[in-house]
Design a protein around this nucleic acid. Structure first.
Length: 572
RNA sequence: CGGGGCAUGGCGCAGUCUGGUAGCGCAUCUGCUUUGGGAGCAGAGGGUCGGCGGUUCGAAUCCGUCUGCCCCGACCA
């Protein structure tokens, strides 16, 4: 492609609407334009990136034996009513009516449609397993679209759905998809991690998310390199400390602590570390009463774990200050587990403390030197907290670290949820109708593009991983108006690169060198060739790698060969 | 949906408090000079100041109302 034929407008300044770096850079580089909230136009160069990602996904899905098809974006309400999701899905579903007043939605996902296909097409166990996939535009009317492509309302997704006679077959395809996903993200040149995830409402046996690691990621991931453990922070178990509780060394003492409510205040006032304090949270109980959850001062409550506790109301709700005052005769901020009139559940780490400080259940008073078993009963213990860096790995070997990630893929086992409600059955060996088991496997194709930028950029712009770069090479022709020789040489070089099958962008615009260099950096094309009169005289062209900034001069005649080894080496 | 912020040429902003008929930088167009990291000079085009209503002799500016966009929370590829 010749840049002189492409109306490309790049910005020096960051558009005010963009908050995250990927969104900013895509707007500045002219890859993306916003139409409305959560709706974007992929401009020509941006679309090339999207297509390259799509192609890698497609190749690996094909290699894993999945079958590509394409379902309609618009879906009839009847299918969604069959599974009950027409009512459950709520406002995320964009609904519409046709001229006959029939109800439709713009598909946010395709379980219903694919299950309808499966029940019509698949009649015998002999046809199983089957794994169908598509790469298609989805629409989810997100409550709050944000961060550009990261949470757009309309987005490109690869969604796959597999059908099986039995669990063993489902497991096999699930594993095959996990491997295919790992290959996809590896081929795309992304730093990623598969993590154990909450299977949530769907209730399937297994679920894994694939996260691209980036500072700006929305999700916190706990992982351990020693034993390969990785899970969403919400999902990671915090093990009880393996060292026994120290012996009590201090006598319990009531201390006046005027106006010190927060852990930070208390720890500061008493001159002790936060991990020597207890934090007592009062939550509503299922039976209408209250329950006290006790954590170490430096730990955070994990709401997923807390909700799962017997007796705790679901969803979790913190008791109001009024209820606390009424039931305990003490405002929040001075509550503690000693002589507390409601049930106490302590986190393992909190239960392992000796000589700790906590609220005295009286305004402006705390207790110090408190010990379980002596000053108050041994508590019921449970895992209540989020894991923190340095915690032992639940998999048993090594310590956890915390990283941030962007979820770009999710695989899970659906079981018979949809096949049962939609009567998608096949005849088994015994000639009996049985509902098929299903798996489902998603990849956010457009989100990958944003995630790649979040992970790969510098102060000058994007640094595309080779396999998704819009072009492999940018050829900059310096001062085209000044020298006919340079122009001729650039054209000849461009032609020979194209002939060699190299994806090259020729910057033949009549612009100053600085503009071209800046745009090349902003666009993030991995390999840059610069042809100017200076080099031409010496019979050489300058090469520069976007990521490293390394430069070298290449003989004109060697350029194609040089790039083929360089570019192809990077692409596979 | 709750909370906060913003809306002025394509982009970034000033002007709003204290009403007097719109300005700066970038971008765009023309010419000349320049040309290895976002050039200089001279000129040009482009804005019903988000919409509607009100106050006023007069509204970007004050009042009301609606809309759009962005950020923080619960959801998700």
């Amino acid at each position: 492609m010749r840049l002189s034929c492409l109306p490309l407008t790049t910005f020096k300044e960051v558009p005010a609407e963009a908050e995250v770096i990927s969104h900013q850079l895509m707007l500045r580089a002219g890859l993306l334009r916003r139409l409305a909230s959560g709706l974007f136009t992929w401009m020509p160069i941006g679309l090339r990136v999207l297509r390259k990602v799509e192609q890698v996904v497609r190749e690996e899905m094909d290699r894993a034996g999945a079958l590509e098809l394409l379902m309609p974006a618009v879906q009839p309400a009847e299918l969604w009513q069959e599974t009950g999701r027409w009512d459950v899905y709520g406002n995320l579903l964009l609904r519409m009516r046709d001229r006959h007043e029939r109800e439709f939605c713009f598909g946010p996902t395709h379980e219903e449609v694919i299950t309808d296909i499966a029940r019509r097409e698949l009649k015998s166990y002999k046809q199983l397993p089957v794994n169908y996939y598509q790469i298609q535009t989805k629409f989810r009317d997100e409550i709050r679209p944000r961060f550009g492509l990261m949470r757009a309302r309309e987005f490109l997704m690869k969604d796959a759905y597999s059908f099986h006679l039995d669990q063993a077959s489902l497991n096999a395809t699930y594993e095959a998809m996990a491997e295919a996903y790992a290959r996809i993200f590896t081929r795309l040149g992304l730093g990623f991690r598969p993590v154990e995830a909450d299977s949530g409402e769907i209730g399937g046996a297994r679920s894994q998310e694939f996260h691209v690691l980036a500072e700006s990621g929305e999700d916190a991931i706990a992982y351990c390199d020693a034993d390969q453990f990785a899970a969403n922070v919400e999902m990671a178990a915090a093990l009880p400390p393996d060292t026994p509780r120290p012996a009590a060394g201090a006598a319990m003492e009531r201390v006046s602590t005027p106006d010190t409510r927060s852990i930070a205040d208390v720890a500061g006032f008493l001159g002790i570390p936060a991990e020597q304090c207890l934090k007592t949270l009062i939550v509503d109980a299922e039976d209408g009463g209250l329950i006290a959850l006790v954590l170490r001062g430096d730990h955070e409550l994990n709401t997923v774990k807390a909700t799962a506790l017997p007796g705790v109301s679901s969803p979790l709700s913190m008791a109001s200050p009024e209820r606390i005052q009424a039931a305990l005769s003490c405002p929040p901020g001075f509550i503690g587990p000693v002589d507390l009139s409601v049930p106490v559940i302590a986190d393992h780490s909190a239960a392992a403390l000796a000589d700790f400080a906590c609220g005295a259940n009286a305004v402006d008073w705390h207790l110090q030197g408190v010990n379980w078993g002596r000053d108050l009963p041994e508590p019921t213990t449970a895992d209540l907290r989020n894991v923190v860096a340095g915690d032992p790995s639940p998999a048993g070997d090594g310590q956890l670290a915390i990283a941030r990630g962007i979820e770009v893929g999710h695989i899970f086992q659906l079981g018979d949820k949809y096949s049962r409600s939609m009567q998608a059955t096949v005849l088994d060996q015994a000639g009996k109708d049985v509902p098929m088991l299903m798996g489902c496997y998603g990849i956010g194709v457009s989100r990958i593009v944003a995630a790649a930028i979040e992970q790969n950029h510098d102060e000058h712009g994007i640094i595309w991983p080779e396999p998704m770069a819009p072009f492999q090479v940018i050829l900059i022709e310096l001062n085209p108006k000044k020298s006919a020789e340079v122009t001729a040489a650039a054209q000849a070089m461009y032609e020979s690169l194209v002939t060699a099958g190299i994806d090259v962008l020729l910057d033949d615009r009549n612009a100053r060198p600085g503009v071209k260099f800046a745009d090349a950096d902003l666009l993030g094309i991995p390999h840059r060739l610069t042809l100017g009169d200076r080099g031409l005289k010496a019979g050489a062209i300058e090469y520069r790698a976007r990521r490293t900034g390394n430069e070298e001069n290449i003989e004109l005649n060697d350029v194609v060969k040089f790039l083929q080894t360089k570019v192809l080496a990077g692409a596979n």
